[in-house]
Simulated assay, not measured.
Amino acid sequence: MNELADRARSIIEEVFASLEEIRESVVTCYRSSAGFCTADLAGVRPEIFRCLGRAPETLAGAGMIVAPGVLADRPRWLEWWQAPDPTFLDVDLDPGSLDFYDYTAAEWFAVPERTRHRHIVGPYVDYGGTDTYMLTLTAPVEDGPRFLGVVGADVRAARFEALLLAELTACPTEVALVNAEGRVVVANSPRHPAGSLLHEAGERLPGLPWALVSARQAAGASANP
Rank of each mutant, 00 (worst) to 15 (best):
N2A: 06
E3T: 11
D6C: 01
D6S: 01
R7D: 00
A8D: 02
R9K: 09
S10A: 10
E14T: 07
V15Y: 04
S18P: 00
I22T: 00
I22W: 04
E24Y: 08
E24I: 02
V26F: 01
V26E: 02
V26D: 00
T28Y: 07
C29H: 09
R31S: 11
F36L: 04
C37K: 14
C37P: 10
T38D: 05
A39Q: 14
A39H: 10
R45F: 12
P46C: 03
E47S: 08
R50G: 02
R50Q: 11
R54F: 03
A55D: 10
T58L: 15
A60P: 00
A62W: 13
I65T: 15
A67D: 10
P68C: 13
A72T: 01
D73L: 06
P75E: 14
R76S: 05
E79I: 01
E79Q: 05
W80S: 00
P86K: 00
P86R: 02
F88V: 01
F88E: 10
F88P: 05
D92C: 03
L93T: 04
L93M: 07
S97D: 03
D99L: 13
D99S: 10
F100N: 08
Y101V: 15
E107W: 04
W108Y: 09
A110T: 15
A110E: 13
V111R: 14
V111Q: 08
R118N: 14
Y124K: 02
Y127A: 14
Y127H: 14
G129S: 13
T130K: 10
T130L: 13
Y133H: 12
Y133K: 10
M134F: 05
L137H: 09
L137A: 14
L137P: 11
A139Y: 00
P140D: 06
V141R: 04
V141Q: 02
E142T: 12
D143Q: 12
D143C: 13
G144W: 01
L148H: 08
L148W: 07
V150G: 15
A153N: 02
A153I: 00
V155P: 08
A157M: 13
A157V: 15
A158F: 14
E161W: 05
L163N: 09
L164F: 03
L165N: 05
L165M: 08
L165D: 09
L165K: 01
L168G: 05
L168I: 04
T169L: 11
P172L: 05
P172F: 03
P172D: 07
T173W: 12
E174T: 15
L177F: 04
A180D: 12
G182H: 06
V186N: 02
A187E: 07
H192W: 15
A194H: 13
L198H: 12
H199C: 00
E200V: 06
A201L: 04
G202W: 06
L205S: 07
P206G: 00
P206F: 08
P206I: 05
L208P: 08
A211D: 15
V213S: 05
A215V: 00
Q217H: 14
A219F: 09
A219N: 08
A219T: 01
A221V: 08
N224P: 01
P225I: 07
